[in-house]
């Protein structure tokens, strides 16, 4: 279908973008890669009066180091994330999960910032940034603020960003030495996760010293499998990992749709957590 009519602006600085957003109130939409927004417009599920195209603002694209932290510009595309040497070295989980997103053409345009701001619990990258203990930096009329991933995803398709804020960068602590794996369960190529599990594991003396597990599509927001994470500490082989993973769905509220019932999703969360952790720990 043809999208509804809207005004279009292409600001050249973050400040100009924020000013345009603030003036428009609730009526504006940020356009980054457009790979979620364009389908919504075509299906007439969104009716912005103003589309603010931030795609060409310089400085919001690319990856740099800041001590023990990796700083990824919000406009860095999925394609760039997958190939970036710094991401691969220090946040391999993000590169691996991003390689499962959509298809090559969508990955050329879709951005990390857009995936997070969209706050779709079925998206793969929110749970990954949550597992990485990332932080999101937003720019607004009052300046910049940093929001931990744990507080960023508020509800279904709702982030902590206010309508006049722009997500500008994503900061993730370097996960050097951590094993990782993203286990995505979906029915056909290019489709969204029915459930996905992002696992990070630090090993000491052949045991799991610490584990972090992010869950995709197990509720209205991405979640951490906290009970399983606690139980995984000290696990020294496949049996203890399986027992710990049996708590992966605790505290989650998975939804019902054409692909899966809540019970089936809970089952998937347990099985995929076991697989993801075993692979991440090199025990699989």
């Amino acid at each position: 279908m043809i999208p509804p009519a809207f005004e279009y602006a292409r600001p050249e600085t973050v400040e100009e973008a924020v000013r345009l957003l603030a003036e428009a109130g609730d009526e504006a939409k940020v356009l980054a890669g457009g790979q979620s927004l364009l389908p919504l417009l075509r299906l007439r599920l969104a009716f912005p009066e103003l589309v603010v195209d931030v795609g060409r603002i310089p400085g919001l694209r690319g990856v740099r180091e800041d001590g023990d932290t990796l700083v990824i510009g919000a406009l860095t595309t999925h394609h760039e994330v997958i190939r970036d040497p710094l991401v691969r070295r220090h946040a391999g989980l993000l590169a691996a999960a991003t390689a499962t997103v959509a298809d090559p053409a969508v990955r050329h345009r879709g951005t990390l910032g857009g995936s997070l701001a969209h706050a779709d619990p079925a998206g793969d990258l929110p749970a990954v940034v949550l597992a990485l203990d990332g932080e999101l930096v937003a720019a607004g009329p009052e300046g910049r603020r940093t929001v931990p991933a744990r507080e960023f995803f508020v509800d279904y398709l709702q982030s902590a960003l206010s309508p006049d804020e722009l997500l500008i960068e994503i900061r993730v602590p370097k996960a050097d030495g951590w094993g990782f794996h993203y286990e995505k369960f979906h029915r056909v190529a290019q489709s969204w996760a029915i459930v996905g599990v992002a696992a990070l594991v630090r090993r000491e003396d052949g045991r799991i010293a610490e584990a972090r597990v992010g869950l995709t599509n197990m509720g209205a927001t991405p979640l951490r499998a906290s009970a399983a994470e606690t139980a995984l500490a000290g696990a020294d082989g496949p049996d203890p990992v399986r027992r710990a993973a049996s708590g992966a769905a605790e505290g989650t509220r998975p939804g019902q749709d054409a692909s899966a019932s809540p019970e089936y999703r809970a089952h998937l969360a347990r099985v995929l957590t076991e697989r993801a952790v075993l692979t991440a720990a090199g025990m699989g």
């Binding site: 292409r10 790979q35 195209d53 795609g55 394609h79 053409a105 050329h108 345009r109």
Partner: peptide, 13 residues
């Protein structure tokens, strides 16, 4: 130089 779905790009982009 990179593949894109032209239905998911605005002409102005």
């Amino acid at each position: 130089g990179a593949s894109a779905k032209s239905c998911s790009v605005l002409a102005v982009q």
